[in-house]
Design a protein around this nucleic acid. Sequence first.
DNA 1: TAGGCCATCTGGTCCT
DNA 2: AGGACCAGATGGCCTA
Length: 391
Amino acid sequence: MSRDAWGRFPDVVGHMARAEEREGYETIITDILQKQYSIMTKSYTEENMMLESQNTANWTDECQSSQDEHDMEKKNGAHDSMNKDMDEEDIDDDEMNRLDEEDDDEDEEEEEGDDTKPKRRGPKKKKMTKARLQRFKLRRMKANARERNRMHGLNDALESLRKVVPCYSKTQKLSKIETLRLAKNYIWALSEILRSGKSPDLMSFVQALCKGLSQPTTNLVAGCLQLNPRTFLPEQSQEIPAHMQTASASFTAHPYSYQTPGLPSPPYGTMDSSHIFHVKPHAYGSALEPFFETALTDCTSPSFDGPLSPPLSVNGNFSFKHEPSSEFEKNYAFTMHYQAAGLAGPQGHAPLYASSAQRCDIPMENIMSYEGHSHHERVMNAQLNAIFHDS
DNA sequence: TAGGCCATCTGGTCCT
DNA sequence: AGGACCAGATGGCCTA
């Protein structure tokens, strides 16, 4: 989603533009803020309490009548700072100092007038003054701006993560939670491959990737890898060819059921091992057996929540080079971006197992969604090639 | 229309 | 005191 120069989203800008057309809304907002602050801090004198009680009585009606403006302010998000093109960096200390001075002056006046009243114990509570209100607003604006920046940074990092997990697509973005789940599965799958030292079949690999993902994301992953999700979803297990079931048997033994407690909707957590294929792993000689045997022995937790401690080294097989200069990258039959057709044989298909008796021919064209020729996608393809071809 | 996802605001807590 | 981080609340957008 595109943002303007101040990081504001289009709908926010639109709201602001409409809000700016309203006359006097700032006054109303300031009034509301003042009342809110008075209530929040509870720092008022008896006189203020009297006033507050009166104001509170009127406040509900006022808030109701000015709800549109108030909502506008909330939606705009620190609209004052935005309307004045102020960001966190723009709120300078001079303004704060000036407000401090005003604040001090008003405090002195307050002390002079308090002679007749009994002095309270404890920390002195300050009256809500205009300057203090301004300071409060400035502080709030700065905090909001920081929080916005922080969340933008978080989202940027998440976007980076999206690009390095399989099935990156600019048009159909994975949600945040699905990105994290897929990344977790991906890391786990790669680490197990490294640990076992054997190449898995594509089916099991996709199954591992899709564990705990929602149905749409599962479809997306399957689509990216040009698999029919029906072939590895548990509900359709009976339709799976024998060799697929064999390959999937080890997946059955996967101790990491993704049945995350409290998941919000049925699509999540449907890959629980308790209902996948119902096949015992040791009865099959899948190439993935070591892959999951280690998992069985190493992991006692029924979920992915335990420490993974993946034996991954980015400096190892996954050489992060921009150009496919190495033999490693050049020779992959699993190449997606370098047009696998010429490498994968006359039918444009390549065997998943270079050495396995159980082969699963998958069309190589567009094996992943490909919308750009960025570095990370080449790296991703290289990694997948390494997994399915080189180990 | 309900539900999912998201951005933002907000107050609390912890840390420096 | 101020910043980072977090979680709850809220409202908008989109889709089935």
